[in-house]
Design a binder for these strands. Sequence first.
DNA 1: CAACTATTCTTCTGTATGGTTGATTATTTG
DNA 2: CAAATAATCAACCATACAGAAGAATAGTTG
Lengths: 118, 118
Amino acid sequence: MSNTRRKAIKSLSPAMLSKVAERFKALAEPTRLSLLQALQGGETAVGELVERTGLSLANASKQLQQLHAAGFVSRRKDGLFVYYALADDDVMQLCDLVCGRVRRDVKAEERAILSQGL
Amino acid sequence: MSNTRRKAIKSLSPAMLSKVAERFKALAEPTRLSLLQALQGGETAVGELVERTGLSLANASKQLQQLHAAGFVSRRKDGLFVYYALADDDVMQLCDLVCGRVRRDVKAEERAILSQGL
DNA sequence: CAACTATTCTTCTGTATGGTTGATTATTTG
DNA sequence: CAAATAATCAACCATACAGAAGAATAGTTG
């Protein structure tokens, strides 16, 4: 029996899979997520992001570059400052989806612990 | 577009950010994505997944465990076989979002190359 | 039980990368 | 020009992890 029923979702080429994985990888680090979070207020300079996140300047800069390479944030230089911003709202859609999962799981875990303590 | 109040991640705790990052990390590897892709046909045993993906048995098993730990796939043992399945359709929503981005970017790149050759 | 099969576990190696530190490049200002 | 500020770059270290190979486990069948 072979896979006769092909769904609307077509199989991606290995090259595509790599690119997709790369994008996910950019979101797979708490520090980068916190930067994205800090960017929700709108376009922000690196220094300000450092204050909001508590990251070191060098590290923040490095992680922002990765987010930029992955296409999740835009970059604009103006004078001494470099301003980053969320590239579009795909990012937040992604996070919302995952956050939903996490919240559900956390709640389930809490329930499990509670029922244990009875 | 009206200025619909976008429900954003409001200051997730570091612990939450870690959990979210972990979920993304599970999707940040081509091999795991290919396993998810192979699971689109429905519940499938490990051996069959190995055939579809070309992964080694040990590796496939390992990666499936990670996907399971992240809650993206379900696991059911029946006799000698272990059957995995997509846990829900969140996974595919996530992938579709990212695939959309990747496709757009690839096309943009193609255009860039074409316009260079003028 | 013993032989067999599907899966998982264990151990190992190479590589990728997060974060730090210090130097370096832009840009403005005196 | 030199000093000050914002950000990036470069080198480094420690850790994490994908993937391979072989041993071990669990369920099946005679």
